[in-house]
C-alpha cells in the first residue's frame, strides 16, 4: 500500500513537472522532456514499482527512472570531502557536467560525471544532463590535473547524449568529444568509469574510456536512443521496445561483448528503491577496481588500457 502511495506521488510530481515545462515557452528542449516525462508516467503505470520481468525496454525505463540516484547522489554517498571545481577555462562552466576532488575510503581522487536535475528548475539548469562542449573540456581539464598530481579518476556516466544545439555545434561539440577520446587514454592514473544511468552514445563515451568499466545492472549504454533508432528504421516511435531489444544495450549484453568489465548489482526493484544499497554495491566494485589497478606500473596500465580498446573488434577475415 505504501509502495502504491509512493508511486502515485511520483506520478503526481511528474505531471506537475510537465505542466511547468509546458509554461516554459522559451525553452528549446522542454518539448522533448515533456515527451520523456509522459513516457515515464506511462511506464510507472505499466511496470509498477518493482518490475520482475527485466527486458531491454524495462531497463531503459529503470535507467531513466525519475527517482534514480544521479551522479551527485552517488558522490555524496560514496565519497567524503567532495570539492567541486568549475569551468573549462575556455568558455564557461557547464552545469550538466560536475567534477572535483573527493576522498574515497580516505584516498584522494578526482571525480567527474554528467548531472541531471530532479525538479524543473534543476532540469533546465542541468540541461537535462545533455553536455555542451565546455562540459567535456572541463572534465578533461580536471582529469588531466588528476593525472598530473597522481589522483585516480572515477567518472559517472548518465546522459541522454551530447546536446544537439546551435551553440554546441559552433563551439565544436564533435571536436570536444574527439579530443577527450584521444587524450584520456594518455592519462597516467587509473581510470574507473561507472555507467550508472543512461549511456547516451558519444556524449557518454567522452568520459567513459578507462581501465575497468563498471556498469550498473539496470543502466543502458547505446549508440543511439531506442526512440531515435525506431524513428530511423520504422519511421515512428512505436517500435522503441523492439529497437531497445535489437540494440543490445543492457549490461548483460555489453558484458558479453567485453565492452564493460563488470556488472554492479542493484537492489531489488532498482537503484531508486534503495539508493544506499545501490551505493554499497558500487563502493565494493570501485574499491576492488582500484586495488587491482593501483599496483600496476604506468607502462602496464597504458598497455592494458590500449589493448582493451584495440580488442573491441568483431569481423571475419578472408583472402
Amino acid at each position: 500500500m505504501t509502495k502504491l502511495t509512493g508511486q502515485a506521488a511520483i506520478v503526481q510530481d511528474l505531471e506537475r513537472q510537465i505542466s511547468e515545462l509546458e509554461r516554459q515557452t522559451g525553452s528549446s528542449v522542454a518539448q522533448e522532456e515533456i515527451k520523456r516525462l509522459q513516457e515515464q508516467i506511462e511506464s510507472l503505470r505499466q511496470t509498477g514499482p518493482s518490475p520482475q520481468n527485466k527486458d531491454a525496454w524495462t531497463r531503459v525505463l529503470l535507467a531513466r527512472h525519475p527517482q534514480r540516484p544521479y551522479t551527485l547522489d552517488y558522490i555524496q554517498m560514496l565519497f567524503t570531502d567532495f570539492t567541486e571545481l568549475h569551468g573549462d577555462r575556455r568558455f564557461g562552466d557547464d552545469q550538466a557536467m560536475v567534477a572535483g576532488f573527493a576522498r574515497f575510503e580516505g584516498r584522494a581522487v578526482m571525480v567527474a560525471g554528467h548531472q541531471k536535475g530532479r525538479d524543473t528548475k534543476q532540469k533546465l539548469a542541468r540541461n537535462f544532463g545533455m553536455t555542451n562542449p565546455e562540459g567535456y573540456r572541463k572534465a578533461l581539464r580536471l582529469m588531466s590535473l588528476a593525472s598530473k598530481f597522481g589522483l585516480p579518476i572515477i567518472t559517472f556516466v548518465d546522459t541522454p547524449g551530447a546536446y544537439p544545439g546551435i551553440g554546441a555545434e559552433e563551439r565544436g561539440q564533435a571536436e570536444a568529444i574527439a579530443y577527450n577520446l584521444k587524450e584520456i587514454p594518455k592519462l597516467q592514473v587509473p581510470i574507473i568509469p561507472v555507467i550508472h544511468g543512461e549511456g547516451g552514445s558519444g556524449g557518454a563515451l567522452a568520459i567513459a574510456v578507462g581501465d575497468h568499466v563498471l556498469m550498473l545492472e539496470n543502466a543502458v549504454y547505446s549508440v543511439i536512443a531506442p526512440e531515435s533508432c525506431s524513428s530511423i528504421l520504422w519511421r515512428d516511435w512505436e517500435h522503441k521496445q523492439e529497437a531497445s531489444r535489437i540494440l543490445k544495450l543492457t549490461a548483460d549484453d555489453l558484458y558479453g561483448f567485453r565492452i564493460i568489465d563488470e556488472i554492479v548489482p542493484e537492489p531489488p526493484g532498482g537503484a531508486h528503491a534503495d539508493p544506499e544499497a545501490a551505493a554499497g554495491f558500487l563502493r565494493a566494485a570501485i574499491k576492488k577496481g582500484l586495488s587491482d589497478l593501483l599496483p600496476l606500473s604506468l607502462e602496464e596500465l597504458h598497455r592494458r588500457r590500449f589493448d582493451r580498446l584495440r580488442s573491441l573488434a568483431t569481423f571475419v577475415s578472408e583472402g
Binding site: G199, G202, F306, L312
Partner: peptide
C-alpha cells in the same frame, strides 16, 4: 555499442 567503441579505439 560495438560501433560506438570504434570511436575510442581509433582515437586511442
Amino acid at each position: 555499442t560495438i560501433s560506438l567503441m570504434q570511436l575510442a579505439k581509433i582515437s586511442a
